[in-house]
């Protein structure tokens, strides 16, 4: 009995800690991804990471490097899709890239022999099977991104407002943007096995979109997006645990609910702050 309680405590602690860290880092990343009006880039990179992992498993190589390399390559390619510089709309280019990644994902799943649980786990995530090492990696990647956001705070603000203004007025826009995309790829790649390729998109968009609804000032957006991301993951997990429901689905629904409440709050508050 005591052994069971001990197991439950450590299990709870680890899962909640991992969920909170994953939610916080994706929420923080989302504040920039949503603010730059490019949530599609997030989903494209997360699917590229998924493709990298699946083909690493298929080829029998270390599944850590596959997603990192694939997401880094896709980040760099997407960095070249710039408004006004490509012959097709940036969103159309991203949609094509996303479809290609989705096609490669399902091709990889189709080519997998034997048990597909490991590969399918990438789609839905496996928060309940989290390891200590995952928590360490997520913490380090989240801290690296937070340090980057703090160091390049003034440049990132201009990029959020307008990449055209940033570029025209001598802000080192290309450098900061490429750096940002590379870290975006890193965060998504390390959170993918835990959160899942399908769910990570909601953790990037919903908490940040909720923060943009109710906040005033850049700093409060960053803080609230991180808090909302963390709350989505923790509350979603607790709901799923106590009601015996799928964890990923609960986290998505909680994050969407946070957005809905924020939107209602702004509507009833009756002002555009």
């Amino acid at each position: 009995m005591n052994v069971t309680f001990y197991f439950m405590d450590s299990f709870f602690f680890l899962v909640i800690l991992a969920g909170a860290l994953a939610g916080a880092s994706t929420g923080l990343l989302g504040a920039y991804v949503v603010g730059m009006r490019m949530p599609f880039i997030g989903i494209c990179i997360s699917h590229a990471a998924m493709v990298g992992t699946i083909y690493s498993i298929l080829l029998g190589v270390n599944p850590v490097w596959g997603p990192v390399i694939f997401s880094a390559l896709s980040s760099m390619s997407l960095g070249m899709v710039r408004p006004g510089r490509t012959r097709i709309d940036a969103n159309v280019a991203l949609a094509i890239f996303f479809n290609l990644m989705l096609g490669l994902t399902f091709l990889g799943i189709g080519l997998t022999h034997g048990s597909r649980s490991e590969v399918l786990g990438l789609l839905w995530g496996s928060l309940l099977f989290v390891k200590n090492s995952s928590v360490v990696v997520i913490t380090i990647s989240g801290l690296v991104f937070a340090v980057f956001a703090a160091l390049f705070n003034k440049e990132l603000k201009v990029l959020l407002f307008s990449r055209t203004i940033a570029s025209a007025t001598g802000v080192h826009e290309s450098f900061v943007y490429c750096f940002f995309l590379a870290l975006c790829g890193l965060i998504l790649a390390v959170n993918l096995p835990l959160v899942g390729g399908l769910m990570i998109f909601s953790l990037i968009t919903c908490p940040a979109a909720a923060a943009y609804q109710i906040c005033k000032g850049h700093r409060s957006v960053i803080i609230m997006a991180t808090v909302f991301g963390m709350a989505s993951a923790v509350i979603g997990f607790l709901v799923s645990y106590y009601l015996d429901l799928p964890t990923g689905a609960c986290i998505v629904i909680v994050s969407a609910t946070i957005f809905a409440v924020s939107a209602l709050y702004r509507t009833f508050r009756g002002q555009w702050n």
């Binding site: 009006r37 959020l160 407002f161 307008s162 025209a168 007025t169 943009y212 005033k216 000032g217 409060s220």
Partner: peptide, 17 residues
């Protein structure tokens, strides 16, 4: 150089003060 673009090129919906 200071540049003020047309409205479509900046994101006026962000809550910057």
């Amino acid at each position: 150089i200071s540049y003020i673009p047309q409205a479509a090129e900046y994101n006026a919906d962000l809550p910057f003060t």
